[in-house]
Nucleic acid binder design. Structure first.
Lengths: 166, 166
DNA sequence: TCGAGTTTGAAATATTATTGCGTAACTCGC
DNA sequence: GCGAGTTACGCAATAATATTTCAAACTCGA
């Protein structure tokens, strides 16, 4: 069972920091029921071990002028490994592409893109993505409105799971 | 032009905190070139004004036992506003659904879901999502591997844009 | 039960966050 | 272009937090 190297306190720490990454260590320690020093040591260990990959302020994209969110389904001509990773590398260099995931099934990749407005997305689409080597097809879907957008994982589900397999 | 209420220092603050949400205020102040007190005041203002929605630790889902990431394209039978929001509300209550976006085009919603393993996702799919009222069709795509996953927005693009329209 | 290896928490210290306040810069209306 | 009002700054002082130190408590396998 993965994640089992962690005890309940570690999981509580992760859950709390996922919900509020700027919580002070004192507050965090209080919430998970231990004193500050061991709490801080646990956090550092979780960071070193890679359970915590980083901390990020969640900024309001719309308020900042990124009014457009688009999902793009991309099909490639060749699925040879070298071609796949070449495309992934391109995605990493496109700032408008925030996420790039390789999929099973007919479509090869799904991209999550942001842009200031529709026209700047169109420019990216026609001049970059569609023109990129090995790209066979792109189907885009504009997000009309967002209903839910929570980062991370549901710790509730994890706890239930651990309780069952205890 | 949106986001113009902010000056360059504010944007730098947002950019820095997006990249490292746990940076100390002292370090942040140093990076943006002002002293600590006004820097902290700016951060608080940005939080109050809603430019910063929160802070989150980025946890490694796989390490925590969420090995499966799936995108689900959902079509509904009725697109009446009350039916749309009813579905959105369901999504908010499903812990495995981390994101739910309403789309234009043929598909009504795209859902980003995590799960400990394929079978628990299948259970969710067949017992919850497919069985939910008003759901007409669901097409799922399993993520084979992730190539890029960056939260937030590209501040570079924003700066370029502001420079052009200056 | 014994002890090696961990983990803890109180206390001390170093850093950081926060407040108070005087000053400089900036904004308008004239 | 000149001052009243406003805003934002940074220094200095204080409060709070982070971090180190270290002895005691705990965990397990022998």
């Amino acid at each position: 069972m993965p994640g089992a190297k962690l005890d309940e306190i570690d999981r509580m720490i992760l859950s709390e920091l996922q919900a509020d990454g700027r919580m002070t260590n004192v507050e965090l320690a209080k919430r998970v029921g231990i004193s500050a020093p061991p709490c801080l040591r646990r956090v550092r260990t979780l960071e070193e071990q890679g359970f915590i990959l980083g901390y990020h302020a969640d900024v309001d994209a719309r308020e900042l002028g990124f009014e457009v969110l688009v999902f793009a389904m991309v099909g490639l001509q060749s699925q040879a490994e070298s071609d796949l990773s070449a495309f992934e590398e391109k995605c990493r260099n496109w700032p408008l592409v925030r996420e790039c995931h390789m999929l099973n099934g007919e479509v090869d990749f799904i991209l999550k893109c942001v842009a200031p407005d529709l026209s700047s997305f169109q420019t990216f689409l026609t001049e970059e993505l569609l023109r990129a080597e090995n790209v066979a097809s792109v189907k885009t879907s504009l997000v009309i409105r967002g209903a839910k957008d929570i980062p991370g994982v549901p710790f509730d589900v994890l706890e239930e799971r651990l309780a069952r397999n205890a």
